[in-house]
């Protein structure tokens, strides 16, 4: 009972602190503190409620148990991280996005292809591509190559559509100006159209960064060597070792956030001129 009361107290404290902070003028400090307090409150409530209500750890382990498990099995987690994120997701992401980027530049020269590929690409981008995973695992074997292939297929079309749209995002006036400078196709591409396309390209890169991780993990459900995050999650669920599953989830969440954050930082550096970036301090 005391634990439940503690959870309620944490909840009240969190809300009180956040309401006070939200009334202060908006600044970097409050903008960071409010979500952090919110997250901490949830973790504390989770811990107290799981203990207070005697939730069995095969249903929901408390955060402290997850942290303890995380600390003792870092080598397993690291091995899975390298297998899934480094080998599977990142290599597929680079190949898929790079390929889509080059293809977008190639078809940009042919309006006919563009008009044909854009609707098809938009259609394919909305399909449950993840279903290709069993087929690709069959083709490329159980190791990371098949995971990279799944990631390539998943990121390809969103990236293609975004890049093609970005390359069209110049006004006639801008193109005429390049024309008066006697700029050829390559100069126009390099100095006007690629920079103008950057916000779209980064939008594609951001969307596909989460897709890449999902693709690599889910592909492991269809067959994998005896390491990898997807493999570990599905086998640990079978053994009811839920604390290890949650530790993997923490790793996945951290990897996903760092991946996304890295792309967002790069975007900030490259497209500093864009209105959506200039508005922020």
């Amino acid at each position: 009972m005391a634990w439940v009361l503690a959870a309620l107290a944490a909840w009240a404290l969190g809300i009180w602190a956040n309401t006070r902070l939200a009334r202060l003028p908006r600044s970097r400090g409050t903008g960071l503190a409010v979500p952090v307090i919110f997250g901490l409150t949830i973790v504390v409530m989770w811990e107290c409620l799981v203990r207070g209500l005697n939730v069995p750890s095969v249903i929901l382990p408390p955060p402290s148990a997850i942290a303890a498990r995380f600390a003792v099995s870092t080598h397993i987690l690291w091995e899975d991280f390298v297998q899934t994120v480094m080998k599977g997701a990142l290599s597929g992401y680079v190949m898929g996005c790079g390929g889509a980027f080059l293809l977008a530049i190639a078809i940009d020269r042919f309006p006919f292809l563009q008009r044909g590929l854009l609707p098809v690409g938009n259609f394919v981008a909305a399909l449950p591509i993840i279903g290709m995973a069993p087929i690709l695992v069959m083709w490329f074997g159980f190791d990371w190559q098949s995971k990279a292939a799944v990631v390539v297929v998943m990121v390809f079309f969103p990236m293609l559509v975004n890049t093609v749209q970005g390359l069209q995002d110049t006004t006639t006036m801008q193109r005429d100006l390049m024309h008066t400078y006697a700029a050829g196709y390559w100069a126009t591409l390099l100095y006007l159209r690629l920079p103008a396309a950057m916000p779209f390209i980064f939008n594609g890169l951001k969307i596909t960064s989460t897709l890449a991780l999902i693709g690599a993990i889910v592909a492991e459900f269809f067959g994998s060597p005896i390491r990898g995050m997807g493999f570990r999650i599905s086998t640990s669920v079978g053994q009811l070792a839920l604390d290890l599953v949650w530790a993997e989830i923490v790793v996945a969440a951290l990897a996903g956030s760092v991946f996304y954050g890295g792309v967002a930082l790069l975007e900030k550096a490259v497209t500093f001129w864009h209105p959506s970036q200039r508005g922020r301090a």
Binding site: A22, I217, V237
Partner: peptide, 26 residues
Amino acid sequence: NRVMDMSVMPWVIASQTIPILAIAPM
């Protein structure tokens, strides 16, 4: 609600960097 805007919105965005499909079996 200003409090919700400041506290929930960042977590909504962060929630999507978690590959939820990975936890589907669990």
